[in-house]
């Protein structure tokens, strides 16, 4: 019987970033700053090549995925690894869609900008993280209003159990907050059990609600 455990968790807001397993909590001024902190601490060697064009959801998704990898002790960059990423959230790429089409309309409906179009898929923020980290596992977006994170955890855990991947990241993000869980097969450590999360996060969709329900933010020590 393959057991899948949640081994790490990260949370990014406009003013702090948390690595739950390592009990690391640092003040930051948003996602870009959260990435800069990782670079300053030596966890990453540089910033993403196209980071300047990231839309707000991609910025938070990217940052929280990296913080979760640090929390889990997964190497970032280097040789490619079979690690999957699934993203969730009821809004999908709505804000990026609006930004792309408003720009196109404002330009007289004659020319659109490819660097905005790229982010009009809910998988692009995940793909930016996979590209930077070198993760080659399954990558997709899914959401379910009723099941919320409870259902997404079930799906991500099943993917981790069924396939040859070494870890699965589950990310939920909006422009201001993002949360990421790391699931691993037959791991020694466990932050939360999958069954606990399925039960307590049923119907929860907002990243901030995930953290509040799990009660991981209070009492964390600063680095």
């Amino acid at each position: 019987m393959i057991s899948v455990r949640v081994t790490a968790m990260a949370f990014i807001t406009r003013n702090q970033c948390l690595a739950v397993g390592q009990q690391r909590c640092e003040p930051c001024s948003g996602a870009k700053d959260a990435c800069r902190i990782l670079q300053d601490r030596g966890f990453i060697s540089g910033q993403p090549k196209n980071g300047g064009r990231f839309d707000p959801v991609t910025q938070t998704t990217f940052a929280v995925a990296l913080w979760a990898c640090v929390d889990a002790g997964l190497p970032i960059g280097g040789p490619k690894r079979r690690i999957g990423i699934v993203g969730t959230g009821l809004q999908g790429s709505l804000e990026a869609n609006r930004a792309f089409f408003a720009d196109y309309v404002n330009a007289g409906r004659n020319s659109a900008r490819s660097n905005l179009f790229v982010y009009t898929l809910p998988t692009t923020p995940l793909a930016e993280a996979a590209l930077f980290c070198g993760f080659t596992g399954p990558l997709w977006y899914m959401c379910q209003p009723v099941g919320g994170w409870g259902r997404m955890i079930e799906e991500a855990a099943r993917c981790a159990a069924e396939t040859d991947i070494e870890a699965m990241l589950l990310v939920g993000a909006d422009a201001n907050e993002a949360v990421c869980l790391v699931m691993q097969k037959n791991a020694d450590k466990e932050l939360f059990s999958v069954s606990y999360l399925k039960k307590h996060l049923q119907g929860v969709n907002a990243p901030g609600d995930v953290v509040r329900i799990l009660g991981v933010a209070p009492g964390m020590k600063g680095s």
């Binding site: 999908g92 898929l121 809910p122 998988t123 990558l139 997709w140 977006y141 899914m142 959401c143 379910q144 209003p145 009723v146 099941g147 259902r151």
Partner: peptide, 10 residues
């Protein structure tokens, strides 16, 4: 209502 799952992978 609400039990359906949206899947998007480009």
């Amino acid at each position: 209502a609400g039990r359906g799952t949206v899947v998007s992978a480009a």
